[in-house]
């Protein structure tokens, strides 16, 4: 049972909320309160657009405990439009080919359950190939 940890990370996981540095305007994800670019204090919340592209990726067949139900799945380093590179699962890929540079967008999905079927459900960000807009 890791309820407090999941609860603390909710805003970051559900809404892709990180921080923006008030000194150098760098966008920071995940939140760390200190700017990795200029070293200044950075506690201003910033909501990312959720748009980005695949920086690199790999498909997992042997997966960590708790993720077995979803195997196999693809994990990517996603470079967000605002700068940071984050690790996340890709979803809804289907037969589409994933490549470095594939444009992706954030969706909120069920990541796993905490423990067994009695545990809390953990939701968070994944990325999918951008839906075609008319």
């Amino acid at each position: 049972m890791e309820i407090p940890r999941h609860w603390r990370l909710q805003k970051q996981r559900l809404a892709l909320v990180g921080e923006v540095c008030p000194h150098c305007q760098a966008k920071i994800f995940p939140a760390r309160d200190v700017c990795p670019e200029c070293g200044g204090e950075a506690k201003t919340a910033f909501k990312f657009s959720g748009k980005g592209e695949v920086y690199s990726f790999t498909t997992l067949h042997s997966v960590p405990a708790g993720f077995e139900e979803n195997a196999p799945y693809t994990v990517a380093l996603v470079k967000l439009d605002e700068g940071p590179i984050i690790t996340a699962q890709l979803t809804d890929v289907g037969e589409r080919e994933v490549k470095i540079g594939t444009p992706v967008e954030m969706v909120t999905r069920r990541i796993r359950q905490d423990g067994d079927e009695r545990g809390m459900l953990i939701y968070g960000y994944k990325f999918r190939p951008v839906l075609r807009m008319s």
Binding site: N70, D92, V107
Partner: peptide
């Protein structure tokens, strides 16, 4: 729905 979808994720999108 896919393996990672439910009423909550559908509602959010």
């Amino acid at each position: 729905p896919g393996l990672d979808e439910d009423t909550i994720t559908i509602s959010i999108e």
